[in-house]
Design a protein around this nucleic acid. Structure first.
Length: 531
DNA sequence: AACTAGTTCAACCGCGTCGCT
DNA sequence: CAGCGACGCGGTTGAACTAGT
């Protein structure tokens, strides 16, 4: 499916070859040297091939110098890696490969290179293209990105491996936790946050049901966070839909409709009153939520949450808006049937605040270490895993928020006891975050600071503790006091307008509950975007 | 046959990281 | 430790192609 073709490729190449002389000159690699850009010709390929076979890979800039190629080293490397490497596997992805890609993406997010390493003969670019194409199609059809079996695999796999990992790295000593694994991601710098969010009240004038339609939210420029907008299908293409459906079934091995995560529900949340595949129980029963209330818009929870910035490497430190883009494509639903299926996995119907609307320069900061890293939480650290884990993590986080801010010692314990994996009863109606986990999702777990605030944790604004019980932006632009120690999630989350306007959601709520112990100086990123 | 919208894929671009000096 | 170059990665773009009308 993915590549429509070698044939096409050949045709294109042929054309390119013929148009060699017209190739545009100049380039970013080295504008001064007028390096050629654009499609490679077969002659160039030959030169590059010859050079690499004699000199080996690496030192790509030398290729240009020594081979006479008018291509920058970067371009040479790309060409070699993506097209000329002898071990490249050409042609469409096999079903096995497709399945693997899906699984890997569920685990690691947009780590194309890492995924490529798991797929011999495949390039990151290829995988990326495949995924993006696939995502587009699935979203267009309103289907879940991950087949249920993949979800369960990832969940199980990570739960086990990460716990094992943790035990190894910490020697089982909960005190000596491995900071790489602990999801020390909380909102910091609340004062700054409040500033950042200060214009949110503007949004509050827009009814929740409509806000998502506002320019800027639905625009392509803003699709990054939770409201990516793919153009609605202008015509229904039966063949395409069929194909999509086939993909879901074939690749996933499990029919994703109408309840794509039923399997997970069974596995992990059987005892819960609401399907809770990711431990993402909504405060609502899905039956209580009218997902069509937003003018027929689907719940805009972004399941795909955000590998990019949940993953543990540098790319995670990008400003949220950037990081989220590809991973949170639009979720569009065409019928209530699909809504139902999504309702199970993305329980929130809350309109979500696009990160862009907050501040594209926001930073993700490492939270202060928790008094005692809940083991399970550590196992689900978004920093060490992908989307699904992130979702789980957030679920845990949200759950944990219920704990009294004063009862710091209970944090770890309560979180442990609120794992989605166990069947411990949770009163989501009172406690959980309706905005959801999936909506703000992983993003909401993170600290959001303006760069100018600095990532220094010793700034007063970064002291989450101080903020416990501090102001909460009301949906109406006012601020109200939330008594410290009270259930921070008792804000009126059931109200979309509150959710939208509640900068406090980002700051206070999370911080109030998560922030325990010393602020950490560790930052996920620096002001420059992480370097 | 012409037009249009959607898809695919190669290549580019910007940025982060690493290693060397 | 700063500066620099090389390299790698992920996101985006644009042209070619395909399919539907």
């Amino acid at each position: 499916m993915p590549n429509g073709g070698e044939e096409k490729r050949k045709t294109k190449t042929r054309r390119e070859s013929s148009g060699d002389e017209d190739g545009n000159i100049a380039g970013k690699c080295d504008a001064a040297s007028a390096l050629k850009k654009g499609p490679w010709t077969s002659a160039e390929d030959a030169i590059l091939m010859e050079y690499v076979t004699t000199h080996g890979e690496g030192n790509w800039n030398a290729v240009q110098r020594h081979s006479g190629l008018s291509r920058c080293g970067k371009s040479c490397r790309l060409r070699w890696a993506n097209h000329l490497r002898p071990d490249l596997k050409k042609g469409a992805f096999s079903p096995e490969e497709e399945g693997l890609i899906i699984e890997l993406h569920a685990k690691m997010g947009n780590k194309w290179a890492r995924m490529a390493a798991e797929l011999p003969g495949r390039t990151d670019n290829e995988i990326k293209n495949y995924w993006n194409t696939r995502i587009k199609r699935l979203l267009r059809a309103g289907l879940p990105i991950y087949p249920p079996d993949v979800c369960s695999k990832v969940l199980e796999g990570n739960y086990e491996t990460q716990c094992m990992d943790r035990n190894e790295t910490t020697g089982g000593d909960p005190v000596q936790k491995d900071h790489r694994e602990i999801p020390e991601l909380v909102f910091k710098n609340f004062k700054i946050n409040r500033g950042v969010l200060s214009y949110l009240p503007n949004l509050l004038d827009v009814p929740g049901s409509n806000i998502l339609k506002q320019d800027g939210f639905g625009s392509s420029n803003n699709y990054g966070f939770m409201l990516p907008t793919l153009p609605p299908p202008k015509r229904i293409r039966t063949a395409t839909e069929d194909s999509i459906f086939r993909d879901v079934v074939d690749v996933g091995g499990v029919i994703g409709l109408p309840t794509p995560f039923s399997q997970l529900t069974t596995d992990y949340a059987a005892s819960e009153r609401t399907p809770d595949p990711f431990g993402l129980s909504s405060p609502y029963d899905s039956s209580d939520v009218n997902f069509t209330s937003y003018d027929g818009q689907p719940p805009l929870a972004a399941l795909s949450g955000s590998h990019a910035f949940l993953n543990d490497d540098s790319s995670s430190s990008e400003p949220i808006s950037g990081a989220m883009k590809l991973e949170l494509p639009s979720l569009q639903y065409t019928d209530t049937h699909q809504l139902d299926s999504w309702a199970a996995m993305t329980p929130t119907a809350s309109p979500l605040l696009p990160v862009e609307s907050v501040d594209t320069n926001t930073l993700i900061q490492s939270p202060p270490p928790m008094t005692e890293p809940p083991q399970s939480l550590g196992c689900l650290s978004p920093r060490s895993s992908g989307l699904l884990e992130a979702v789980l993590y957030e679920s845990l986080t949200l759950t944990n928020m219920n704990c009294s801010a004063n009862d710091q010692a209970s944090v770890a314990v309560s979180m442990e006891h609120q794992l989605p994996y166990n069947s411990r009863k949770r009163d989501w109606g009172m406690q959980a975050d309706p905005i959801s986990p999936l909506g703000h999702s992983a993003a909401s777990v993170f600290s959001v600071c303006t760069p100018m605030s600095g990532s220094s944790s010793d700034e007063p604004g970064c002291e989450m503790k101080q903020e416990m019980g501090s102001q909460v932006s009301s949906p109406y632009g006012e601020e109200k006091q939330t008594p410290a120690g009270t259930d921070c999630m008792q804000i009126e989350f059931s109200r979309p307008d509150v959710l939208l306007g509640s900068g406090s959601y980002f700051g206070l709520s999370y911080g109030g509950c998560l922030e325990k112990g010393e602020p950490t100086a560790t930052t996920q990123t620096d002001a420059a975007g992480g370097g």
